[in-house]
């Protein structure tokens, strides 16, 4: 018997990751180093936010909520402490190397997770995962190219990428933690996060090494993943800004 509430909690956490990463990427609009990347990051942001909406809608179906209104309520009216995104995605956007590397690290993990989810025994979940997975091919193609280009580019681009990796790596361990609700789901509904983490770690380790980037010794400790209930000090400001317009008039029709 499928625990609908557990699966909804899982999907809301996935949606929160996509939403917050999309929001951080949207901050590059008008600020990226070149026009092409301005357009690219705006599109990455739009895609991730679009994907979050698909997951929120699916969660709404499982909870018997109105799928037309549920996503906006989750995004614009939920208190910051109820968000379940990774700290990895909420960190301030940093320099462009930081945002690009974060997107790459997230995209690889997402490809592994979407591959698992598109085999889910829960048909509605598998369908949405399949939709998102093909779109994400374009993200990964883009971020892989840039990680290589910047890692092997100039002394400065390599230095900035290495600094980004050093800063991001401790947060990447959050990827391997079980998602909310995951433990309560029967086998075959969602892939095991710890197994995805192993596949992710193998792939990114090899790829980053080829891009001239070094993972600092002291691999992330999977035994103590950062809880998705804990947020960094910058998160409250992000939520306050994101929700500021909606909170002026929560009943407004858009």
């Amino acid at each position: 018997m499928l625990d609908h509430k557990a699966l909804a909690r899982y999907l809301i956490a996935l949606a929160d990751d996509e939403l917050i990463l999309g929001h951080r990427n949207s901050e590059w609009t008008g600020h990226a180093p070149i026009l092409e990347e301005d357009i690219a990051f705006a599109n990455l942001a739009l895609d991730e936010i679009g994907h979050s909406r698909l997951w929120y809608e699916l969660a709404a179906d499982l909870l018997g909520e109105d799928r037309a209104r549920f996503p906006d309520r989750q995004v614009f009216l939920r208190p910051a402490e109820e968000f379940r995104n990774l700290q990895l995605v909420e960190l301030p956007r940093g320099d462009w190397a930081f945002s690009m590397l974060r997107q790459y690290l997230f995209d690889v993990f997402e490809q592994h997770r979407l591959a698992g989810l598109s085999e889910s025994t829960q048909a509605s979940l598998a369908e949405v995962a399949a939709r998102i997975r093909t779109e994400e091919i374009y993200h990964l193609r883009h971020t892989r190219a840039w990680v290589t280009r910047l890692g092997l580019g100039t002394e400065e681009s390599n230095r900035r990428m290495q600094a980004a990796l050093d800063a991001l790596w401790p947060y990447a361990r959050g990827l391997g933690g079980a998602l909310p609700g995951e433990a309560g789901l029967p086998a075959g509904v969602v892939p095991d996060s710890a197994a995805l983490y192993e596949a992710w770690l193998a792939e990114v380790s090899a790829f980053l090494a080829e891009a001239g980037l070094t993972i600092q010794p002291g691999s992330p400790d999977l035994q103590s993943p950062i809880s998705r209930a804990d947020h960094s000090s910058d998160f409250a400001a992000l939520i306050e800004e994101m929700q500021s317009v909606a909170r002026l008039d929560p009943e407004a029709t858009w």
């Binding site: 092409e36 357009i39 690219a40 705006a42 599109n43 990455l44 739009l46 895609d47 679009g50 779109e135 374009y138 193609r141 883009h142």
Partner: peptide
């Protein structure tokens, strides 16, 4: 190819 992303989600430049 100039950009894998374009003026809408469905286009590249």
């Amino acid at each position: 190819l100039r950009n894998s992303f374009g003026t809408t989600p469905c286009r590249m430049i």
